[in-house]
Computed example of a mutant assay.
Amino acid sequence: MKKYMLLGLCAALLTPISMVHANTLQDQLSAIAQAESEGKARQDAKVAAEKAAREKALLEEKLKRERTIAAAERKRAQQIASAEKRRAQQQAEAKAIREAAEKERLQDKGRDQSYEDQLRELQLAKMKLELESQSKRVKREDDFIDAELKRENARTDVIQSDADSNRAISTGAKELMQSEGRASETKAGKWFN
């Protein structure tokens, strides 16, 4: 549309005009050419500006995608690092638990062995005491036999004493009866009782 206006303007200017106007016409044509070139330059600048704006928008979009991708990669790297850190921490905790359990097991084993050692020592001491006791008993067996014989002799003496005392009582009773019998006989043999 600008071209038509320019052409119309050019045609109007080309109509026979005086020379004075011819100079101005020349100036006008130059101005039109200059305006046309300025318009074309503005048009080219506008196209270039639009192209630059599109390129800038594309570049910004590309940078935005790259930033998004970089952010996603950073986030993924952080997640991986965090997961590795958690895994390492879990492994360290599991190792610490295993080591503590092993230490506890070894301590229990040590306590069990110590207890068994003490129990064996106690059993050995008990067996030694029993052997010593039996050994002393064997050594003193004659003393035990003598004591037993003395006890038996004492019982026999007590029995013998009881028997002797019973005999003495019965002999005394017999003699008493015999005396009483003789006395009765003597008394009965007398005339005057």
Score class of each variant (00 low, 15 high):
Q26A: 03
Q26W: 03
Q26R: 12
Q26G: 05
D27N: 08
Q28E: 09
Q28T: 09
S30V: 09
S30I: 08
S30H: 14
A31G: 12
A31M: 14
I32D: 03
I32Y: 04
I32W: 03
Q34T: 13
Q34W: 09
A35Y: 10
A35F: 08
A35T: 09
E36F: 01
S37H: 13
S37A: 06
S37C: 05
E38C: 02
G39L: 05
G39H: 11
K40E: 15
K40Q: 15
K40C: 15
K40W: 14
A41G: 07
A41T: 07
R42I: 15
R42K: 10
R42F: 12
Q43Y: 15
D44Y: 13
A45F: 01
A45N: 01
A45S: 01
A45V: 01
K46D: 12
K46H: 11
V47W: 06
V47M: 11
A48H: 14
A48S: 15
E50N: 03
E50W: 03
E50C: 04
K51H: 04
A52V: 14
A52F: 12
A53V: 03
A53K: 05
R54N: 07
R54T: 08
R54W: 04
E55N: 00
E55P: 00
E55H: 02
E55F: 05
K56P: 00
K56L: 03
K56S: 02
A57T: 02
A57N: 02
A57R: 00
L58S: 02
L58N: 03
L58W: 02
L58G: 02
L58E: 06
L59M: 05
L59Y: 07
L59F: 05
L59I: 00
E60D: 08
E60R: 12
E60L: 14
E60M: 10
E61P: 01
E61C: 01
E61H: 08
E61I: 00
K62S: 05
L63A: 06
L63D: 09
K64R: 13
R65I: 11
R65W: 07
R65E: 07
R65T: 07
R65P: 01
E66F: 02
R67V: 07
T68Y: 06
T68Q: 10
T68K: 14
I69H: 14
I69N: 15
I69Q: 14
